[in-house]
């Protein structure tokens, strides 16, 4: 564990809590892509199956259980409890165009051709693009609430911090996982346009609005 990973994990945790608090306080999931949230639940469910096969640390297990359960809770809140507020008309990204190619790629490019390893690879690839339905939805509506912007900034920062963690681990531990690094870079690049808007608008007290 190094400082970049710890802050990265905390940022990821903060993002999930921010999203749940926003939904709970406003009794609404307006502006949130249910498709992205389903993809994140799929990411955690396919990645953390090793909860049953290997033990790393209490921290590791607790975080995994937290991520799986909160992602399921988020999907439940969006599609059941607060379904009336879900903006499905604007959540029209075709997720099969992500899941199918990513599934194929996980079969072809992986560290080891075994079920758990392929599922882990699938989850790494899927996570890198899982935010696309959310970004697509924002570009369709042309706006984002400030709390949604904070959520996305924390979520995007998490993988960017992991890149620094991988640089650190490469130099000091000789650890290097090409699949995670490439996917993590792709994931972070997808957020760059949003990061720019966040820094130039949200941090100056303005909402994110996009030109039509």
């Amino acid at each position: 564990m190094n400082i970049f990973r710890l802050i990265g994990d905390m940022s990821h945790l903060l993002a999930i809590i921010l999203l749940l608090l926003k939904m709970w306080k406003t009794r609404s999931c307006a502006g949130i892509s249910g498709k992205s949230q389903i993809l994140f639940a799929l990411v955690f469910a396919s990645r953390y199956l090793d909860l049953f096969t290997s033990f790393v640390s209490v921290y590791n297990s607790v975080m995994k259980i937290f991520f799986i359960s909160t992602s399921l809770l988020t999907v439940y809140l969006m599609y059941f409890k607060f379904r009336a507020t879900y903006d499905s008309n604007h959540d029209t990204f075709r997720v099969e165009f992500l899941v199918i190619p990513v599934g194929g790629l996980a079969f072809l490019v992986n560290h080891e051709f075994s079920p758990l390893e392929i599922l882990w690879t699938f989850s790494i690839y899927l996570e890198s693009v899982a935010i696309l339905p959310q970004l697509f939805m924002m570009s369709k509506t042309g706006e984002a609430e400030t709390i949604t912007s904070h959520y996305l900034f924390a979520l995007g920062s998490y993988r960017a911090l992991y890149i620094l963690n991988w640089v650190y681990r490469y130099y000091f531990e000789g650890f290097f996982d090409l699949i995670a690094v490439v996917a993590g870079c792709v994931q972070t690049i997808l957020y760059c346009d949003f990061f720019y808007l966040y820094i130039t608008k949200v941090l100056k007290g303005k909402r994110i609005t996009l030109p039509a």
Partner: peptide
């Protein structure tokens, strides 16, 4: 490429 069987990252 070195990789851990046991994945310690989240």
């Amino acid at each position: 490429i070195k990789k851990d069987k046991k994945k310690d990252e989240l």
